[in-house]
Design a protein around this nucleic acid. Structure first.
Lengths: 110, 110
DNA sequence: TCTTGACGCTACACAATATGTAGCATTATG
DNA sequence: CATAATGCTACATATTGTGTAGCGTCAAGA
């Protein structure tokens, strides 16, 4: 499964519509989690892996490769971090946190 | 892999933090797509399947089951549709569309 | 009362992906 | 040199998804 650029056809869609490309990559296991954990700042491979409950390095590497290709994450001295675009996306993901808290309350009013 | 309620421990996380539950389910293949397609209004199983590029019915059913358990989707006469909570979430997803369009332009300035 | 068709699935064999552990190659440090 | 940290890769096993067939229920028409 290779990440495709938006504008190109993608698994599960014949449109190549950018949002489909995004959903395709976010819908892979661990991608959302990785983006979420990078909010802690630039992290090296092993630290990021630790934050992600010791995800298999095979998968972590595959996801990081995709995220780099899609210019959501970069890799420099010191480790992995958001690009500007990735930071924008992560700000969107951050809003899911508050939403999920409210959602959880209505699900488990306990 | 069963969907767990927020507040309960979840695959890939020891916190049970609600946003992790959300990322867990959104990170399964097809979940984002299914939520996206439901923006067309209430759809029956076969129509929804058609919108999702004829996804395997096995997976569609599994995802719908999870989404119903998490009260993001309901199933009534006429088919599947968002709950109020699901509609809130889908509004968040809708903003990804515009974002992805801009992102695509910077990726492929063509 | 017999089709016929729509619908919501389930079964199942096969294919693709993820997991988990080991460990290699490179670089820096003592 | 030896040691340790880092960024991975290899690989066998386990989990998940795919794709096709088709079943059971219901409702409408002949």
């Amino acid at each position: 499964m290779t990440a495709k650029n938006p504008g190109v056809q993608v698994r599960g869609s014949t449109t190549g519509r950018p949002v489909m490309v995004l959903f395709d990559v976010l819908g892979q296991r661990w991608t959302l989690r990785i983006l979420w954990e990078l909010r802690h700042g630039r992290l090296n491979f092993r630290d990021l892996r630790g934050r992600c409950d010791d995800i298999s390095p095979t998968v972590l590497n595959a996801r990081l490769k995709t995220l780099r290709e899609l210019k959501l994450v970069d890799h420099r001295e010191g480790g992995y971090a958001y690009t500007d675009q990735g930071a924008e996306l992560s700000r969107k993901l951050a809003t899911f946190d508050q939403w999920a808290e409210r959602w959880a309350k209505t699900l488990n009013p306990s």
